[in-house]
Design a protein around this nucleic acid. Sequence first.
DNA 1: TTTTCACGATAACATTTGTTATTAAATTTT
DNA 2: AAAATTTAATAACAAATGTTATCGTGAAAA
Lengths: 190, 190
Amino acid sequence: MFDQFKSRFRIDNHKWNEYINCFNRLEIPAKTVLLSEGETSKKMFLIEKGCIRVWFNNNGKDITCQFFFEDEMVSSIESFRKNIPSPVTAETIEPSTVWWIHKKDLDRIIEEIKEIPRFRDVFINTIFERTFDYMKYFFSAIRDTPCQRYLNLIKERPQIVKRVPQHYIASYLGVTSVHLSRLKSKLAKQ
Amino acid sequence: MFDQFKSRFRIDNHKWNEYINCFNRLEIPAKTVLLSEGETSKKMFLIEKGCIRVWFNNNGKDITCQFFFEDEMVSSIESFRKNIPSPVTAETIEPSTVWWIHKKDLDRIIEEIKEIPRFRDVFINTIFERTFDYMKYFFSAIRDTPCQRYLNLIKERPQIVKRVPQHYIASYLGVTSVHLSRLKSKLAKQ
DNA sequence: TTTTCACGATAACATTTGTTATTAAATTTT
DNA sequence: AAAATTTAATAACAAATGTTATCGTGAAAA
């Protein structure tokens, strides 16, 4: 589970064991809430198996804004970094296995390995890539029709279309589930 | 113009003068292109006076995706950082005064002051904030109606509504200029 | 097994948004 | 000043999308 990170940073074995001992394995059923809207995020989750959606409430309807799958880290990064109430809820879609770590442990680890220039660069690069991702999402939202965004999702993120219930995808695309269903049947006819 | 940065990082006078000498002042009319779509960004611009929009072409129509005003830095950060062709064009809206710096000079300066922990943290924090901004834009795009987004713009970024021609704002909101005009007249009646 | 419940498809109708065209005012250029 | 260009408003119609309701299927719970 953690080898992907180890090989990237060349951390000595002793330290490495100390770090991975901070993680706790957790097996949970579908629809388990890992972080609630309004709660300040104190844990970071790493997905071993399963899938998680992040959503927020808007006038009684929930709007899904992110999906996470195997090997991805999940939290409300805004809540986690700034110690403020989370604007979103994180919840499993499938029965899942996750590893979680306390914020204070992760902060300490980051503080320690921050001194490794190699790590620092990877860290900064990761944040930049996240920014570029969200820029893309925003640009797509103002440029493309819902139909184009759905086709794009099939192409770029097939996992989502295959594993996630359709009404979650609909709100992620900014349309109703009725309309997404309509778009699908229209596309099937062509 | 540069004092806002100097006070933030406590850099000694000699170095400071070396740094600001890398910047070139430029007075330009409205509709001047500073970076073209497809071109690899080699300059970063800092706005002393005026305003700049960033846009991309979509099937012959241009879609504005960002606005910049006084004291803000402009480039395609993706092109600038990754040395790839810019997905966007940057162009003045008003007659403007900008300061520009060569990428190689800026890279060298950043490399030097990166060693100052204080700077490093501000740098990392700035990227995070950019990410949060784009997350907000994306969330708003899938959650809010164009009308809500327009009202939000008036509230959160009044400069845009006051200084930018309406058809640029329309594409930024993801609607046609006809429709934005319609929304405005509807709001005026209430 | 039986009973809920979650999920998705579809229809009918309402509302929003896009398209195209026209006009007028404001601004810039000549 | 005159001409050209840019910008915004409006109307009429078309297309996209939302809303509400109904139905069927399959999965989960009792």
